[in-house]
Design a protein around this nucleic acid. Sequence first.
RNA 1: GCCCCCGUAGCUCAAUGGACAGAGCGCCUGACUUCGAAUCAGUAGGUUCCGAGUUCGAAUCUCGGCGGGGGCGCCA
Length: 586
Amino acid sequence: MFEKEQTLVKSQVAEILNEAGLPDEPLKWTWIPFSAHWGIATSLFATASKEAKAGKPVNVKTRATELAEMVTAKLQLPPEFEKAEAVNGYINLYFDSQIFAKQVVDSVLQQGKDFGRGEATGKNVMVEYSQPNTHKAFHVGHLRNMVLGSAVCEILDFAGDHVIRTNYIGDIGLHVIKWLWNYMNFHAGEVPPTEGMTRWMGGLYAEAIKRLDENPDLEEQVRSLFMRWDARDPEIVALWQQTRQWSMDAFKEVYDLLGIRFDHIYYESEVEDSGKEIVDELISKGIAKDERPEGAVIVDLDEILGTQEKYRVLVVLRSDGTSLYSTKDLSLAIKKFEQYHLDRSIYVIDVRQSLYMSQIFKLMELMGYAWAQNCYHLAYEIVNLPGNVTIASREGTVVLLEDLITEAEKRALVIVQEKNPDLAEAVKAEVARNIAIGAIKYSLISRDNTKIITFDWNAAMDVNGQAAPYIQYAAVRANSILRKVQFSIPKSTQVGYTLNKDEVELVDYLMRFPLEVQRAAHDLRPLLIANYAFELSKVFSNFYNNCPVLTADEQTRDFRLRMVAASKQVITNSLSILGINVPDVM
RNA sequence: GCCCCCGUAGCUCAAUGGACAGAGCGCCUGACUUCGAAUCAGUAGGUUCCGAGUUCGAAUCUCGGCGGGGGCGCCA
């Protein structure tokens, strides 16, 4: 925002340095910290350092101070700037509070829900996330993927990319065959209950694992069932289709509840055959070695690339000719680029698959696909249970998603009941849902992708401190003020009074949102938005406590009302790209 | 053995290579007749795991340790 004014001043500074015959060193501009006013700043250490390296006998620190003083003395500030200061080798350029505050608030209110949206980049970016396996249950480990992936999609979209949100359903593979085997032998004809379908599906899978662990001889039956699937035995295919649909129906409920959506859904089963064709191609090209029947079909990446213990060996087909995850992923990667004209393909997958992902990408490169370098593995750490216990559906150490959400809603409802007992029951339920889901999502997003999250019931549903409900509450309070004036926001006028520290800080934070969006998109880190939303809410809460709006004199009241409306808007926008709703009351 | 990630206040975590390392929780003390106290103000809490190096400047980059976690041929 205010790029024109900023660019003008920045180029002026560069010109002054240039005219003084100083080395050309790009300046890095940041915000001025520790100030009741706001503006932009840059240090001159880099320039001074370059001078010193060029042989000039200067002390970098004192020279930077000198330069900063020289520049600020010569600078012709545009009227939008209040003053320029040289401090400790820094140039601080202060904005004129009145003028900038008006501009910031005006643009927020003009742009509304689009405030912060970046210019269209014209880039097609595919983000694959969620990737659930049918015939298994959703648990909190999957939730991190969903929440992260979905937020990344919304952030990229908001930042200006054209995003294709994709899901990749694990609807076939050994786990499905094991489930079918258990169903056919011990649960033939049963149908899932209408409530808790994923629990039932997951339960049957865990049972299959248990039976097979207890009696390894039964593995033979599973293998022969896999062969029947491979031959597309009609009975197996029909049963598979039926049971797979049960899972898909259950998934849809979860996605709807969490407000998660997809533009395209791929299924493993649809890329299985084409994957095998690619394996044949790899063999004929001499990239893959066919060691069947004794061994599998493998690609020795280290041997091909001349690396050592880096890319290792990728198995692309089982020795019995059945497909693996890799078989299908090869085909899918190609299909994605063929179907959409992708500039970038992002895979949101947990960090344990880092080697595997790099193998797939590298193999694509070896096959001659130039786009391989535009594939990116967005790795995130897993969610553990207390005591470093890994969540595993086969171990039964899972916290089911439906249980988590149900419990969170229950707890949220108790609080709503206590804080706001007069609300209609339906409203209470709606509010509780927004708070519960917001709290869960925020707890997963407000940690960096590389950090392991230890799941804890209380932490996941935390409604105190740095958590979604705090942020939602700030927006709700803003909304309450606006309701008092029937949501009639005064028209834009000059700011006719001196803004205090809280007001300046509030406008400062409002202004930063578009930049935070770009940064979060660039780094693929929703955490940055989560932090920003909290900081903004905190600043707004300060403003709320210290700056009376409705009882102020007219001039003050009018601009403060506009600040309140703008704050509500930006808080809402920032939570919105994290997939968190803001209720009207709570 | 090779590779990746993490290590910051008692706990959970932040911090585009920049000015004084910050929040939340917890502890203690205050503020509701006041636009909603799910709030706010204040107190206390640090050898940023250790050691070198690069740099004008390092929690951040490089190297070497220590501690924890993960990955490495037919699971996904």
